[in-house]
Amino acid sequence: MSAVALFDATALVFLAAAFVLLAATPPRDDGISRGLKYPLLIGIGLLIFVSLSNVLEHAGITQVLDEYEDYAEVLFVPLVAYILYSRSSAEQLRLAEDAEREMRREHELLMSVVETTPAGIVVAETGGTVSFANDEARHVLGLPAPSFPVQASEAVAADLTAIVASAPVRGIRYRGFAAPEGAWYAVSATPLSGSLSDTGGSWSSRWIVARASCSKRTASSSARTSRTSGCWPT
């Protein structure tokens, strides 16, 4: 037996064994998934066919498979490329889904913090368009149920425009927002960085935090309790 035939026989035995082992391996998402296992089996199957053809040819048995051997060889490299590309795409998709889930979780957490905080939080633009306001801010600004963006009333819009124009500011005392009690608020505002609009232009919105500084003591007891926490002396 020539060295070439010996090498071919060795290849055939190893590849056949690899095929059997791989076929017996249970597919798992974190290991060899179905999408990887079966194309890999096809790839090894192609190589088995090539080796079988070589063994039959070099052992002097028959050359009948030789003309088909070329097809198997030509198919092998694109098949490997397909396996790698599909696996890579599947992994990237899974990572993107994981990232999206994590982002949603963080968003829900942040929203629960924002919605339950006793400070009013507003995202507003010059002109009084409110892109977001939490419960407390909606109460202070007299905005309707959460449906954004919404245009604030004329008086509130003027206040918001003044604050937006002066941003960034931190902890200034502000009397306004057309509050019926004429309450004082500690107001902080900062420009929102980044480009959030579809046009790619800079976003003119400001993140405003308004905390009740000292509301009129004529408010009801329960209201006073909630609205005078952290009250500044005026």
């Binding site: 290849a11 055939l12 798992r28």
Partner: peptide
Amino acid sequence: NTAEHLSHAVVGALFFGGALSMFRSA
């Protein structure tokens, strides 16, 4: 030509090693 067929044997051995390793870990 001998080197080509030797490479086939190496391919078989390496694929067998990979399949065996996957099978064991599974």
